[in-house]
Computed example of a mutant assay.
Amino acid sequence: MTSTTPATRVAFLHTGAVVIPPVMELVGEQLPGLSTVNYLDDRIVADLADPAHQESVAERLADLAAAAKSAGADVVMFTCSSISHLAAPTAEKAGIPVLRIDEAMADEAVAAAGRVTVLATLPTTLEPTLGLLRERAELAGTTPEFVSEVVPGAFEAVAGGDRAAHDRLVAEAIERHAPTSDVVVLAQASMASAAEAARVEVPVMTSLRPGIARLAERVQAG
């Protein structure tokens, strides 16, 4: 365990309630005693795919980040890959640093410049994740090959309450792509449970643990 900077408060901004418990569990492991506050807008992912509401998302994120700042937060962390591309403009509007939970995962994935397969259950998450991977690859000076797939039926399964079917479908996709991949990236934190079901030899990367580890490094640095 590590100690935290007592004055630090971190606000987590979520687009789905399912990710809050695992994030808080990891924070408890890696940053015991950290002051946290959670914000949830569970319409964001749907609205990103709806032309009538897309433009409202950036403003809503800025408002939530501003609320976090007013509540004493020193930093905000986005826990959803679908909004990673909005971190910088949100930080600029709200006047508070905004971190991306999937950035550390992306750095690990592109480090070897091999073939990276990206799996998602929603198109609205796949494109931002690919964008982040390309951004981090450029910064690292690497040139990975990217392959991607939206796993058919997986989102519908989990949205209907069938987590087992979701995990099976995602695990099957992992196993299908693994023989021709150097690493498999799961674009959504909610997909992490499927990684445990897949029987593959290549690394299967998820965002939560490396993301919170990087947050811990920042908090400890002061």
Rank of each mutant, 00 (worst) to 15 (best):
A221P: 02
P21M: 10
S3N: 04
L133V: 09
P179K: 06
A198Q: 12
G141L: 09
I44K: 05
A198R: 02
P89F: 01
H166P: 06
E175V: 10
L40W: 03
L215W: 05
E59M: 05
S84A: 14
L40P: 05
E25C: 05
H85K: 02
V75T: 15
R209L: 15
G28A: 14
G33C: 07
V57E: 06
T79R: 07
S56W: 06
A159E: 15
E92S: 12
I174S: 10
N38P: 00
T206Y: 13
V118G: 08
A58W: 03
E29Q: 13
A66D: 08
K93I: 06
A154Y: 06
V151S: 12
T2M: 13
M105A: 06
H166Q: 14
R136M: 13
E127P: 00
L48Q: 08
T129W: 14
S35C: 02
V110F: 09
A113Q: 01
A111T: 12
V151N: 10
K69C: 09
D41G: 08
V23S: 04
G28E: 09
P203V: 11
E145S: 10
A106G: 05
P51W: 12
G95H: 01
S193Q: 13
V116L: 09
G222D: 07
R214D: 14
M105G: 01
P128I: 09
G28W: 08
A112W: 00
V110A: 08
